[in-house]
Amino acid sequence: MKFLRDTWLVFARQLQLQIRQPVWVVVGLLQPLFFLLLFAPLLTAMVKQAGGTSESAYQWFIPGLLVQMAMFGTLFAGFGIIAELRAGVIERMRVTPVSRVALLFGRTGRDIVTLFVQCLLLVVLAIPFGLEVELGPLLLMFGMLALIGAMCSSVSYGLGLLTRSEDALAPIMNTFSFPLLLTAGILLPLTGAPGWLQAVGDVNPFTWAADASRDLFQGAWDTATVWKALVILGGLAILGVVWGAREFARSVR
């Protein structure tokens, strides 16, 4: 009970502060727009050259883009915790009886809500371009995005607490996030890739997420791909959150 209450307190504060920081809101909303307006036409042109329709290009691209946003939007959450450490806010809260894990969960919750707003905006904006989606699969899609967000932001907070320096965290994040993104077949399909690259893609959980996401946008929510992705991401989310929480409890005793 106390844990839930504390989580809510931390969540509400973090959300309030985020809304107050207009730069973050604008940047967060602009990012999906950039992909929609600056990258999607490029992809559409390629699909048309190959004989497809522009609608089918969006139907393929947007689901993957949502997965990418879930990864990138939350992987950099760790920078926030470093700033808070430096400002003394974390220490100030540590001397209160607040639940230690709530300090993490409240923040992760905020990250997921932010992610939902961004993703919802992207979906709504893509509909005029020919994107089609049903409500049921979309809800399941957001569930999957929440799992990705919970995992990535927890890991990011954990790494932030471990490194305690933006200069160390930035290269770590870039080193891991870009290979994960590229081998997940989000920006371009992996179908034409050499065998070894496809093999790398097969063990990348985000490949599963992107594939499942596309299935969901086709209205197929009970395919093997979807369930596998949910199980894999669910397991990874649990691992990520547990590790992040332990890191929090260890350094924020």
């Binding site: 504390d6 502060l17 003394g88 009886p97």
Partner: peptide, 24 residues
């Protein structure tokens, strides 16, 4: 603490209310 712990974008009133709530 020596460096304090007020967040730049918060106000004194908000921080005090939150702190009181963190104490239950």
């Amino acid at each position: 603490s020596q460096g304090g712990g007020v967040w730049d974008d918060s106000t004194a009133r908000e921080e005090l209310e939150l702190q009181a709530r963190l104490y239950g």
